[in-house]
Simulated scan of single mutants.
Amino acid sequence: MHLNAPMRAALAAASEDRIVFDLGGIEAQYDSLLAELPDISVRFAMKACPVDEVLACLAQRGSGFDAASPNEIAQALRTGVPVSRIHYGNTIKSDRNIVDAYRLGVRDFATDSTQDVAAIAAHAAGSRVFCRLATSGDGALWGLSRKFGCSAADAVLVMEAAHSAGLTPSGLSVHVGSQQMTSDAWQDAFERLADVLTSLNARGIFPDHINLGGGLPALGYLDNRGRPLDPPVDKIFAVIREGMQQLRAVSESPLAFIMEPGRHLIADHGAIRAHVSRLSSREQIDGEREHWLYLSCGKFNGLYEMDQLQYRLVFPSHAGGEHVPAVVAGPTCDSDDGYAHEHNRVSVPASAASGDPVWILSCGAYAIGYMTQGFNGFNPLPYTWIRGE
């Protein structure tokens, strides 16, 4: 994440802990994505950042929304976006969820089972459905390989069931896993899509769109050893463009393409102003002495994904001086509230003292949505926003 002058000023001016979103940076990232994939319609994955101001700026840019519940649908509608640009992207939904979404005007539903298709037909008659194919999740920090999606054979059955039930079998979808670090995963997804599309066309079913889901990576994270993650974004975009051409060549009807980016658009354009709770040194039972840096926020109030990655830390009141390797952890009485990997040691100022400010970068994704209502009595972070350079 690049700390531009307005973001740096906003973090420096904050006297209390908070997360700051750079709306200008988010808009620029959206424009950059469309420059790489001009044939894509964006449906922002709301779960990544359910902040009204962020959603509004994306809606004004032309984005639609991938919603996973009636509450998210209602929030999306408050941006003023046409309901035709909102789809119910969660394959898991109750009858009541379907009824409420249909009442709000949604007519596009994700599915991955014949049971769900039957429920949609009963409670959202005439709607369009897109079937989610399972992927391995290999290469992603968070693979999504079992809870969602079905096999190619099941996908054909699901789409045939939708057609028979009076629904429109409108599309296929995939998700290659969150923070996908390889282009191979995308190549595999396109091959799966091509096979199912060919099978459906042979059965007289002609989907009109392909939803490529989420998975596009953010660039500002560190791995569990503190090294910069380096996703091959140029190669990923090239594979996606080639895959879209491949599917258009296979399909017997015109295809439109949708994506559901979340963290790729907002992760690197949010930062937390936190503070040091304590830098301490303790001998462990194996005789090793460790430094621990306890922050005012952690896994349960802003840094939920710290079990899989590290965030870049900036200590604005400490320029130079001696540093020590420390384990970074949050303030709660929970052993999961810290970096999990045995090699997780972060170089921190040896003079860091309680109350010193710490800026935590690339926190725009999932920081708000995953926060508890005050686990252990530590408050969720408030947020603010700027419109940077």
Score class of each variant (00 low, 15 high):
A153H: 08
S354P: 06
G338W: 00
D52C: 04
H87I: 07
S362D: 03
F65Y: 11
R192S: 11
H209A: 14
Y383L: 11
P228Q: 07
G330M: 02
T332N: 06
G139Y: 12
Q246N: 12
L313N: 06
L381D: 03
I26L: 10
E283L: 09
C150N: 08
E389M: 14
S251I: 07
P169W: 06
G166A: 09
S178I: 11
R387V: 15
G171H: 05
R289K: 13
S41A: 13
I86V: 15
M1T: 09
F375D: 11
G177M: 01
D230F: 08
S84P: 03
W359N: 11
F257M: 12
S94K: 03
P228K: 08
V239H: 04
S281P: 00
L23A: 08
S173H: 01
E283D: 10
H323C: 15
L3Y: 00
S145Y: 06
A329C: 13
Q373S: 14
A194I: 02
S199L: 14
R107S: 12
L361G: 08
I386P: 01
A14C: 02
A185P: 04
F378D: 07
N344R: 10
A122K: 07
K93Y: 01
D286F: 04
V106P: 01
A152I: 07
F130S: 00
M306S: 03
D39K: 12
A238E: 12
R103P: 01
L279I: 02
I266K: 09
D138S: 10
R225W: 05
W292T: 14
I73C: 05
Q60F: 13
F206N: 04
S145L: 07
A340F: 10
R107W: 07
A249D: 10
I40T: 05
R103K: 13
D184R: 11
D336Q: 12
L104H: 04
A194G: 01
S199C: 13
